[in-house]
Design a protein around this nucleic acid. Sequence first.
DNA 1: CGGTTAGTGAACATACTGTTCATGATTGAT
DNA 2: ATCAATCATGAACAGTATGTTCACTAACCG
Lengths: 190, 190
Amino acid sequence: MQRDGDRRVRRTRALLHQSLIELIMAKGYTRVTVQDILDHADVGRSTFYSHYNSKDDLLVESGSDHLRAMIAKASASPGDPAAADDDPLLPALLIFRLAGANRQLYQSLIGGRGSAKVVSIAKGMLTEVFTDHLRRARPATDAIELEPTVAFLVNGLMGLLIWWLDTRPDLAPEEVYRRFVHLATCGVLT
Amino acid sequence: MQRDGDRRVRRTRALLHQSLIELIMAKGYTRVTVQDILDHADVGRSTFYSHYNSKDDLLVESGSDHLRAMIAKASASPGDPAAADDDPLLPALLIFRLAGANRQLYQSLIGGRGSAKVVSIAKGMLTEVFTDHLRRARPATDAIELEPTVAFLVNGLMGLLIWWLDTRPDLAPEEVYRRFVHLATCGVLT
DNA sequence: CGGTTAGTGAACATACTGTTCATGATTGAT
DNA sequence: ATCAATCATGAACAGTATGTTCACTAACCG
C-alpha cells in the first residue's frame, strides 16, 4: 500500500511525534521545549521547522491524528452496555475511555502537570464534536441556543475529566461517565 | 490613617499593578511581557523582581485584591430581584455582573485574546467560592460528591462566561445568569 | 538628622525561538 | 542503474525574554 509522501518525511514526523509524547509524559507539556524534542528525536533544528511552526503545531497535528484513529476504532463498536447508541452525550463516554486507557499521557496533558493551553486546544476539538453530535441528535434545537449549551457542557466535561485524572484515577471511566450524564442532564443540585 | 509599609513600596506596587491592567486591555495578557510592564511603569528591572517573581505573580496578587474589594462591595447589597438571597448559585450572578461591568478587561483576561493560564487561576478562585457556598447552602451533601460537582459547575460557568464575552457581549449579565441557572439545574437537554 | 530601606540602571548569564544556507544524503520515478 | 527532485543536516545568526547581581543614589521613617 502506497502511503503518501516521502519515506524520510514519514520517518521524521513519526520521530518528532513519538518524542513529543514521551517528553510530555516525562516532564509535562508546558516544560517541554522545541530544543528538548530536537535532542530527544535527534533531528536537526531546521528539519523541525520545515515540518511544523511550533510545539503547539506539532501537538495539534499529532493529537488530531491520534484522536481520529481512536474515534474510528471506538465508533466501530456499537451496542455498548454502558450507554444507549443514541445517547446524545455518547462522545463523552469515548473521551473518558480514551483518557482512562492513557491516563499518564492525558494527566500530563490536561491535568495539574499539564498546560492550560492544551486544555483550550482540547476544548476546541470537543466543541466541534458535541456541536455536530447534538445537532444531529436533536435537530429541533435552536442553533442560537446550541452554542452556549455546548460551551457549558464541554467545559463541565473538561472540569470533571481533570478532577478525575488529578484526584481520583481509581474510578472507572464508566463511573465517571455516569456522573457526567447525571450532572449534565439532572443538574448539579440533585 | 497609617497604611502599612513604606510609601515607596506602595507607589511602586500601585504603578506595576496599574500598568499591568492597562497593558492587558491593550494587548491581552499573554502578549504582555515583564519588559512591557517595566517600560510602561517606568520602573527598574531589579525593582520589579524585588517585589514579584513573575508576571503571573503580579497578576495573582493584583487580582486577589481586586476580587476581594469587588466581593465586599457586592455582597453588601441583599434583596436582589434577579435572584433569591438563598440561591445556591448566587455567586455566579456576582461573577457575571463583575465581568459585565469590566467587559474589556475580563475579555482580555479570559476571552480569546486572554490566557488559558489566567483561566485556570480564575477557576481556582471560583472553586473555593462555590465549595464554601454549596457546603453552606446544602450541608447534607456528601463531601465526596461535592468535589466533582463543583469541578463541573465551575468549568461550565467559565465556559459560558467566555462564550458570553467573546461572542455575545450584548447580553445582560442577568440574562446570562438565567441561562447558567437553567443549564446547571435543569440540565443541558431541556 | 541619620540609619535603614528601596529604587536605579547597566551589565551579565542563560535559555529558547525561528531563520538561513551551503552541503550531502535519500528517495521515487524513469 | 541513473538522475533530478526532494529532504535532512548542522552550524551560525539575530532576536527576544528572563532572572540575577551590584555598586550607587534617593527617599523614607522615627
